[in-house]
Amino acid sequence: MSDPVLFEMKGNIAFLTLNRPEKLNALNYATNDLLLQFLDHLEDDPEIRVVIITGAGDRAFSAGGDIHEFSGSISEGTEIAVKAFVRRGQVMTARMEAFRKPIIAAVNGIAFGGGCEITEAVHLAIASERAVFAKPEINIGIPPTFGGTQRLPRLAGRKRALELLLTGDTFSPIRALELGLINKVVPHDELLPAAVELANRILRHSSVTAAGIITAVTRGLNVTIAEGLQMESEQFARIASSRDTREGLDAWIERRTPVYTGN
Rank of each mutant, 00 (worst) to 15 (best):
G115R: 08
R201Q: 14
G57Y: 08
L152S: 04
G147K: 04
I225N: 09
T54L: 05
F61C: 03
L36F: 01
M9A: 14
V186I: 10
K23D: 14
F146L: 09
Q235N: 07
T167R: 02
P153N: 06
G57L: 07
L198H: 09
R246G: 13
L34P: 00
C116T: 13
A84E: 15
G72Y: 01
R59T: 12
Q235K: 11
C116K: 11
A210F: 02
I174H: 08
P153W: 02
L35M: 15
K159V: 01
A84L: 07
T245I: 15
D169I: 09
Q235A: 12
L36C: 10
I103R: 02
I80Y: 11
L179I: 09
L177Q: 13
R88H: 10
A210Q: 14
F38L: 00
N222K: 11
I13C: 03
D66N: 14
R255G: 05
G72E: 10
R256P: 01
E247K: 03
A105G: 09
I140H: 06
D244W: 10
N12E: 15
I67M: 11
A131P: 04
R238H: 12
G77K: 02
R160G: 00
G89H: 13
A81V: 01
F133K: 02
L229R: 15
A105K: 02
R219P: 00
E227M: 07
A63C: 11
N25I: 07
L16P: 03
A60Q: 06
D45M: 04
L177K: 15
E76S: 11
I110K: 08
K159F: 07
P21K: 10
S73K: 07
E47R: 14
F146H: 14
L16R: 04
G109N: 07
D44S: 15
G113K: 01
F171N: 03
N263K: 13
E117N: 12
D45E: 15
E117Q: 14
A199L: 05
N139L: 15
I138M: 08
S241P: 00
A226Y: 12
T245F: 13
T93Y: 09
V50H: 03
T93G: 04
P4R: 07
L35V: 12
K159G: 00
E129W: 03
L179D: 07
L6G: 01
R238I: 02
Q235V: 14
P46G: 05
I53Y: 02
G180T: 10
V122D: 05
P143Q: 05
E79K: 06
R201A: 10
E69W: 08
S242V: 07
G115I: 04
E22K: 13
N183V: 00
G141M: 03
R160I: 00
V223W: 04
E137W: 04
P143L: 11
V185D: 08
A111H: 08
S73G: 00
V217N: 06
S242N: 08
V196R: 11
I53E: 02
T245V: 15
E47I: 03
V50F: 06
S207A: 12
R49P: 00
A63G: 07
I202H: 04
